[in-house]
Design a protein around this nucleic acid. Structure first.
Lengths: 226, 226
DNA sequence: CTGTATCCGTGTTGATACTG
DNA sequence: CAGTATCAACACGGATACAG
């Protein structure tokens, strides 16, 4: 079928055959919190072109990672939704993200999608810091709302109603990232991010997501001769 | 630097920028059990071309995943060796391999490299089945020797002297795979695989690596009309 | 023997425009 | 909204030639 396949019995090579193509994993990531339409996917993946998105969706469907469903009328649109097995791939994103967060060449500050931010919180939460916290945190990024629950030492987050939470973050998800991972004070994020509700809880919340130490760079910084 | 980079702050996207290129992960896999030379890598990655291997090695070196070392004379050859952080990526291969082993589209029977086989054992071992086993297992595939140790409910395997083990498998690594994962009886693998030493231990050993159940295919098998 | 560099045919990717 | 068509740029794989 596929022209360029590793002809290798290794399961890792098979994984790369089905999800190793450019954009395949970012597409899966965007579907991890629930189904999306073609246009939603395109909007949350800046840089992808329509034909590549079509091809990847076909490939991922053929691999049983997602299914295409036509919503019942009146909403006559199609949606793409992960299968159970596709959803099980979340562990890949967690492990990959945790490993890459130590990369010495990673440059911070680039924009992230709504889903990326939420998944990164799922990945980087340090459950040992939750203690006896018992709270709900809402987030509103553009049209999308997410809801996090801290309870019994555990942390869950997904799409959900944000308004009634104990704290509500709203605005630009990148500003929240700058606060949580970049140590930016809320004050300096004002304008891009507003915090409503229990301010002290918000301050505690953002300290639940420590970054692991960077791995050392093994590259000599190349004395740039003209 | 890189022409085609996801411009995405998500750590997963950064990971894909540095290890998402074709052949990058298979190269890392081949170095996971210790350093190799350019020619060794090429031989264990059928299908890769010299220039692509050179490019990937450069990229992985720039990302601090591996370093290039010149062996001291008399062996004047270079070797490629994972950095500490590069070695920490083994978890990626384990998670990826375990997930992909459930793929409904994976076809068994394709050849695997020596390293792939050893890493797959590390990945698929079911420690709960080890019980009080206390033994060493040797494997000799071509020029390479590996040694596994079962002790105190744990399993370790890596490059190492094989001869003195309680059981010695030698011959074609693919035949061992067919026995362990394919359920092929030793008898039918004879010729491709020889087993020396404690035969009963060998039989117990190969049952320590159960495969997880396949995920269901969600693709309708397309009634092939002429 | 161990790599590296260059050329070339081919397939994949990506941007734009366009259609149901 | 959900893709398809077209085309240019690039990456890949193979072969070959070159350098230490």
């Amino acid at each position: 079928m596929k022209k360029r396949a590793y002809q290798d019995g290794c399961a890792v090579a098979h994984a790369l055959d089905i999800i190793g193509d450019r954009w395949a994993m970012p597409i899966m990531r965007e579907l991890m919190l629930g189904p999306k339409r073609f246009t939603d996917l395109r909007a949350s993946l800046p840089g992808i072109s329509a034909n590549v998105l079509t091809q990847r969706l076909e490939g991922l469907e053929a691999a049983s990672i997602l299914i295409r469903r036509r919503l019942p009328p009146p909403a006559a649109s199609q949606i793409y939704e992960l299968t159970d097995w596709g959803r099980e791939s979340e562990i890949l994103f967690q492990v990959l993200g945790r490993w890459a967060s130590r990369s010495p060449t990673m440059q911070p500050g680039q924009p992230m999608s709504h889903v990326s931010v939420v998944l990164s919180l799922r990945t980087m939460i340090d459950r040992s810091r939750i203690g006896d916290m018992d709270a709900t945190i809402g987030m509103r990024f553009g049209e999308e709302e997410f809801r996090a629950i801290l309870k019994d030492g555990d942390f869950t987050i997904g799409r959900g109603e944000a308004e009634s939470a104990d704290v509500l973050f709203s605005g630009d998800q990148n500003a929240l990232v700058a606060v949580i991972y970049g140590g930016l004070p809320f004050g300096e994020a004002a304008g891009a991010l507003t915090v409503a509700g229990d301010r002290e809880l918000a301050e505690r919340f953002i300290r639940l997501f420590p970054l692991p130490p960077k791995a050392p760079s093994t590259v000599t910084p190349e004395t740039t001769a003209s």
